[in-house]
Design a protein around this nucleic acid. Structure first.
Lengths: 353, 353
DNA sequence: CACTCCGTTGACAACGTTGTCAGGGACGCG
DNA sequence: CGCGTCCCTGACAACGTTGTCAACGGAGTG
């Protein structure tokens, strides 16, 4: 004899509160009360219900619960990032995950890949799922579309990159300060011809780090040179080839500031191929694993993605819990880590021009 | 005048199909038909409904839809891994994400951290959310609890680590073969005293790679020595200190096989500190970024986490679509990448014992 | 012309749960 | 003893959507 379900035909479904109520010989509502640990249920009935739940392997349907509850919480938040596989964002994701777990909230993720169409699509999917909140690293220039997409009271936190046209807390690294510090560090070590290598400047972080670099030069009274400012280096391979070119021209730089991980690694490869890795100084923005094991080890301005994720999640949950103070900006400090590559001094024989 | 919602009091909720129906002057059901792109709706009404949807910024509630639909699909799958921040799993996650996106399915993630309590807790959370399927890298020794947790027809795919006590497809790297190949490679380069450094052997992958190492020795008629087989190296720091110890004892190995990323890096650090990194050969299991930039560059048996994620997701979706063939095992091949550290030969002065 | 058939539409119930409310019984107080 | 109060319980409606079914009207057929 196959075991029969107490509810109608559809044999394969999971048991419902109704099934539990029948077994426990109480009303549906009493089961609901027990499941939600409400007070004022007699211990006897609680025991009966618990046992019936055990027998049937009942598990509540959180979707149905959300639908009926007055607060409409789904206990899900969404996290939209450039790429969940990228180490920086993966670490940030992990921190968000930890905060969410403590509250029994699930995290839905999505990778945007610098594609604003995906940003819209995923925002739409999130809307249809009625997530309780959204943490995102923006890709498109304008997020005002969120106003019509999201439930009016759905909080949004922008992380790593600011949002525009929609209110929300922001969690950003001190991009400008960090880049200035890196540049100043190179200048302190005697460099004057410092190249700045960036990702696409339409990416806010890339732009800000370039600005920080310019500010660093300005401080020291060094005139920036266009030929030393390279941008749109979207990949490691591209960074590598552009750096090679740079050193095949006259008057090459004596130091490099690289605005992003992939660019840093590309530059390291190029310097190796040129045999200049112990000659040309290098400071990268954003730390990466094994940077300390290279020779020379790479000096970086480290970000703190875990702290960024944690801060963003905490801010989001505060909003979900009803905080209605004006949007706040959280700045997560960067740290210069001296490892060797940034402390190389220019060749004294090399004329300062 | 504040804009009024057509539905009852709760001003802040999103518009419903009912609101759309009123504006479009059609029945609720017709709106449903238009939203679901059903056939046999007159173009005139379709246009009216579309326009009403536009006006109200209506977006369907997928939760309510799931509840009522006969297939009960949530269009969500869950992905439970050791750690979403770990590069191997982050890459795997990204591949799953891509497959899911193509189907409009959202991915819920969770990090287990080798903690079987979390595995149970997260499996329970997934159950309450009625995910359509589950991809997991197991932590606990037995998954038979899934039988009572999950809806009977919820497919499960085990990735990176096998499941026990619950049926499901498996996607595994060729751990044994890869480790044997690594060991054979070292033997071919003249090594006889090869140490094997592993993570906790209760982790299936660690155990299998150790077995592969032993098989490699056996092939060559080399007797394994217990003192050269270290396990339970759970972290980079621990691996480093145990390797240091190993070389402070008599008759140290001339080559190392490391069964996991963190162990490999820990071993590299130890060899550096001992000044032996150009002397002692090393092959690691699992590739990692910048392995090619170290000196010497690190020879590895590379896994293919993206392929593992893709394969797992494809298998899961096949099951979700109704494939009921017996559980399959998918083996994702590993690749030996020669970079230098694995091709170092033992010192000829070093007696073979 | 009567009949069937099909495309189109809407009324209604139902999915699994929680909010609301009312009823019954025990208890305390005047 | 009458009355109000509090604890406990269950009946019922409702959340936003889809499945089912019946009804309407126009076209096609005998």
């Amino acid at each position: 004899m196959a075991p029969e379900r107490t509810s109608r035909g559809r044999g394969s479904g999971r048991p419902t509160m109704n099934d539990v109520a029948k077994i426990a010989k109480v009303s549906l509502k009493t089961v609901s009360r027990v499941v939600n640990n409400e007070e004022n249920v007699s211990p006897l009935l609680v025991a009966q219900v618990r046992s019936a739940i055990e027998i049937l392997n009942y598990s509540p349907d959180i979707g149905a619960s959300t639908l009926r509850r007055s607060d409409r919480r789904t206990e899900m938040i969404a996290l939209l990032l450039k790429d969940v596989g990228n180490p920086f964002f993966a670490t940030l994701h992990r921190a968000v995950d930890d905060e969410a777990r403590d509250r029994g909230v699930q995290v839905i993720t999505g990778s945007l890949d610098e594609c604003s169409k995906r940003e819209r699509e995923l925002a739409r999917a999130i809307t249809m799922r009625r997530a309780d909140g959204l943490i995102m690293a923006t890709v498109s220039a304008d997020q005002s579309y969120l106003a019509s997409e999201l439930r009016v009271d759905t909080p949004v936190v922008f992380v790593d990159r600011p949002g525009h046209g929609f209110p929300g807390d922001t969690v950003l690294a001190t991009n400008v300060l960090g880049a200035t510090e890196a540049t100043r560090h190179l200048i302190t070590h005697g460099h004057r011809r410092i190249a700045c290598l960036s990702d696409h400047v339409r990416i806010p972080t890339a732009k800000l780090r370039q600005e920080g670099y310019l500010a660093g030069l300005r401080e020291a009274g060094i005139e920036p040179e266009d030929r030393l400012i390279l941008s749109d280096l979207g990949s490691e391979a591209l960074a590598e080839s552009r750096v090679l070119e740079l050193f095949h021209r006259p008057d090459p730089p004596t130091a490099l500031f690289t605005g992003q991980n992939a660019v840093t690694v590309g530059a390291v490869r190029a310097l190796r191929r040129l045999g200049l890795h112990r000659t040309v100084a290098l400071v990268g923005f954003d730390d990466f694993p094994l940077a300390d094991l290279l020779e020379p080890a790479i000096t970086v301005v480290a970000q703190d993605p875990a702290s960024m994720g944690r801060t963003a999640a905490q801010a989001l949950f505060r909003r979900i819990d009803g905080d209605t103070t004006p949007p706040a900006e959280h700045w997560i400090p960067t740290t210069l880590i001296r490892r060797g590559s940034g402390e190389l001094r220019p060749d004294p024989a090399d004329p300062p021009r």
